[in-house]
Simulated scan of single mutants.
Amino acid sequence: MKRLPFLLTALIGLCLFGCSKTKTDEKMISTISKEVFGKLPDGQEADLYTLTNANGMTVNITNYGGIITKLTAPDKNGQWADVVLGFDSLPPYLKEHPFFGALVGRYGNRIAKGKFKLGGKDYTLAINNGPNALHGGLKGFDKQLWKATEVKKDSIVGLELEYVSKDMEEGYPGTLSVKVTYTLDNDNALTINYSATTDKETVVNLTNHSYFNLTGLKRDILDHEVTIESDSIVPVDTTLIPTGKLRAVEGTPFDFRKPTKVSAGINKTEDEQIKAGGGYDHCWVIKRSEPGLMKFATVKDPESGRVMEVFTTEPAVQFYTGNFLDGKLQGKGATYVKRFGLCLETEHYPDSPNHPQFPTTVLKPGETYQTTTKYQFSAK
């Protein structure tokens, strides 16, 4: 009987040790959770998924528009903060906003006058950006409710989204079956895989329209240092439609081949292209040193030390610096003023259907559209 207190103490200690170990182990496991985000006007419910890796990085994605609503990244002191523009609830996303975090399609970027010819037929799209069509139309992929499936494999968690775009939806030919998968790994990388098939010849150019701000939404992005592996851009006219030619970046405000602050050239309106875009709103042609997934851009906030490296299989990227943000929208405790976020929209060139010399965006029956983009975060 005298040994009973000792045995009880030992058992309790063992239990506490085991429980403590379990909690520690749980922290090392990547997780995905789901909650209701809100209701759409037609009564359907949109869900919000939270992806968390073993380091504590979190990414929130809703199946409404495939929108990334939150993404955290560490600073040089190990402090995590949200680095994407957006809102804390669904209602603001249902109103007009500049594609914050959205999955964009069927055709990301602009198509001149909303018209193109394919297979000898003329197609007409909705005009929703000056005289042109932009980002898939009046109700593009960013405003659709996608079928969502949770993904978990080893140390990776993700979300698979599926949507079937009917023939002639928003004016585009062919029934397009789309699958987009977001995955978060323990290297603090968010990877987006896009795939699509069609039953009729069509055009496809999918991308994500997240606005990044590595300060943690504290200030604008003018002090961000940007590097882009590119020798040329796709110059545009005054309506931001490509002229059809390429322009070398050397000796211009568009040269980001070495780390360069956004502020260095963004206001040099003596350059006709800066004037046309109101800053940077152009397509950079990626200089490829290898096929497949390649790092083409690095963004750094010197004060916080946050670094974002971007990889893609695509031939180009639209670098946009929030020139049209005007302070009317607020979210997450921040006011979204001009140049409060920057976008790196991996893609094919704008208006490619009207420029046969550009890399083609045509997808035919029997073919599979397949692209990948990865955003990896660290601190220095």
Rank of each mutant, 00 (worst) to 15 (best):
G171T: 05
K95A: 15
V317D: 03
E367I: 04
L14S: 13
S289K: 15
E45K: 14
I274G: 07
Y49A: 05
F296A: 02
I67M: 01
M28S: 13
G305T: 05
R219S: 15
D326P: 02
N60W: 05
A126N: 14
D25A: 14
K261I: 02
G65S: 05
E250F: 04
T52C: 10
T31M: 04
K328Q: 14
A10R: 09
L159K: 10
V337F: 09
G171L: 11
D255K: 03
Q376V: 11
I221L: 09
I221M: 08
C283E: 12
T371G: 00
D82T: 06
T215G: 06
K76M: 04
D223H: 12
A264E: 13
E150C: 04
L138Q: 13
S165T: 03
L190I: 12
V236G: 04
T238N: 13
T31Q: 14
L190G: 09
S177A: 13
N55E: 13
D220M: 01
G333D: 08
E309G: 05
I29W: 02
G78F: 05
K34W: 02
D185S: 08
T183C: 07
E225N: 03
V151K: 11
V180P: 08
K117W: 01
R219Y: 07
F6K: 12
D187Q: 15
D255N: 15
W284H: 07
T207G: 03
Q79P: 00
T298E: 15
G13I: 00
D351F: 06
T9Q: 08
K121N: 13
S230E: 10
K338D: 03
V104C: 10
G66M: 10
V299S: 07
G86T: 11
L103F: 12
C283K: 00
K39V: 04
P302V: 00
T373E: 12
Q330Y: 00
A54H: 08
I274D: 06
F319S: 01
A10W: 12
K34N: 12
D142G: 06
T239F: 06
P131I: 08
R288K: 15
V226T: 05
N53V: 09
P41S: 12
G136A: 09
K338C: 03
T183Y: 07
A73Y: 06
K34E: 15
T181S: 06
A81R: 07
D154A: 14
D281V: 07
E160K: 15
I192N: 06
T321W: 01
T198A: 10
Y107V: 14
V204A: 02
K300D: 01
G13S: 14
P315I: 01
P242E: 09
T372P: 01
P253E: 06
W80K: 09
M168C: 00
T215W: 05
N129G: 01
E270V: 02
L344T: 08
F87R: 07
F37M: 12
N129I: 00
K295Y: 05
K143V: 00
P353I: 11
K332I: 00
K121V: 00
P41T: 06
T52R: 15
C15Y: 13
E314M: 13
P242N: 09
K39M: 08
T335K: 14
N188Q: 13
T346W: 03
H135R: 02
S378I: 06
D142Q: 12
G101L: 02
T371H: 15
V337G: 09
T298L: 02
C19M: 12
I32Q: 10
K143F: 01
